[in-house]
């Protein structure tokens, strides 16, 4: 009887697997196939072996786009986490007893609810060097006499993207961090305070250890999302990486190869190279974040092996 019902179970979960296979698994393998072909988006793909990979790996623009992506992601993730940690410090400080956490949680998260396209359109207007509101305000207030080239100098454009990304995502990190700090007993913070610990000692010894797993989670998901940075840099300028290729991220590169130049094989190969890079970096992050538990695991295994060997010797 039990066996019969267990078969029905497969039927119940089948729809998910069908959808997953059709919309996730199939594109993954089809992209892999395309990465060995020359394909303009119609007709039959022409198999050309590893040539698309060799062309992408030799393309300085690909590496430049990777470096742009890392720079924008790096600045964003540091600012995002730093801002979220500062806010967590303020909101979890038992001395300040800041009220309105629920309200601020919503306010900080709001930018994340606005569509990236809308955010990009707004900031493109705000940051325009010649006609933008920001330069106008700064000029009217007497802070600048010459317009700042927010979107026409590559470095400033990249930092603008990082700033926009930080603004969009710090609320998300804050909510995750504050949730894990709130899981720690308040008694611990009070006991530390009674014992004479200052704010930074509390941060180092209680707050950070309590949010460490979440920081690693934010780092890894941020990395996966960050290396796929696309919407804001694509929409903020011309969609082709202007200024001076500064906003050409890896996914903007891939998108343009496929949809602007109809070079689907090149785009597919670049996608798989990006996939490999993300996998390697994610593994490195995981190892770095779990060093102590990995060390403990290997120490335990070594201990077990030694005890086994000791047992045999006896």
């Amino acid at each position: 009887m039990e066996k019969k019902y267990s078969k029905y179970g497969y039927g119940f979960i089948a729809p998910f697997f069908l959808v997953f296979a059709t919309f996730s698994l199939y594109p993954v393998f089809y992209t892999l196939y395309l990465s060995f072909t020359r394909y303009p988006g119609y007709g039959k793909p022409e198999f050309i072996g590893l040539k698309p990979y060799s062309l992408v790996l030799q393309d300085s623009m690909f590496w430049e786009s990777l470096s742009n992506t890392i720079r924008m992601w790096g600045v964003n993730i540091v600012l995002q986490i730093a801002l979220a940690v500062v806010l967590v410090m303020i909101f979890s400080d038992i001395k300040y007893k800041v009220k309105g956490l629920k309200f601020f949680r919503v306010v900080y998260y709001l930018p994340n609810l606005i569509s990236a396209a809308v955010v990009a359109m707004i900031f493109a207007k705000v940051l325009d060097s010649n006609y933008g509101i920001l330069n106008e305000i700064l000029g009217k207030m007497g802070f600048i006499t010459e317009p700042i080239k927010w979107l026409t100098k590559p470095f400033l454009a990249q930092m603008s993207v990082s700033g926009v990304q930080t603004w969009m995502w710090f609320g998300n990190s804050f909510i995750l961090f504050i949730a894990s700090v709130q899981a720690v007993s308040k008694d611990l913070f009070e006991a530390a305070r009674v014992d004479g610990a200052n704010r930074f000692q509390i941060l180092r010894n209680i707050t950070i250890p309590s949010i460490k797993p979440i920081v690693i989670y934010v780092l890894i998901t941020g990395l996966i999302g960050g290396l796929q940075l696309f919407d804001i840099p694509y929409l903020l300028t011309d969609g082709l990486g202007a200024p001076s290729g500064g906003l050409n991220t890896v996914v903007v590169y891939i998108y343009n190869k496929a949809f602007t130049y109809n070079a689907y094989g090149i785009a597919a190969a670049a996608s798989y190279i990006l996939f490999t890079i993300i996998t390697i970096v994610a593994i490195v992050f995981l190892i770095m974040g779990n060093r102590s538990s990995i060390k403990a695991h290997f120490a335990k295994r070594k201990e077990m092996r030694l005890s086994k060997e000791g047992g045999r010797n006896e």
Partner: peptide, 28 residues
């Protein structure tokens, strides 16, 4: 665009950059 903003110093560098891009993107 890279030439006009000064990322390429010369017309020759501009065209060389363009050819490199064609070689990758539209190799055929």
């Amino acid at each position: 665009n890279l030439y006009k903003t000064g990322d390429y110093d010369t017309l020759a560098a501009t065209l060389t950059g363009f050819y490199a891009d064609v070689e990758t993107t539209l190799n055929e």
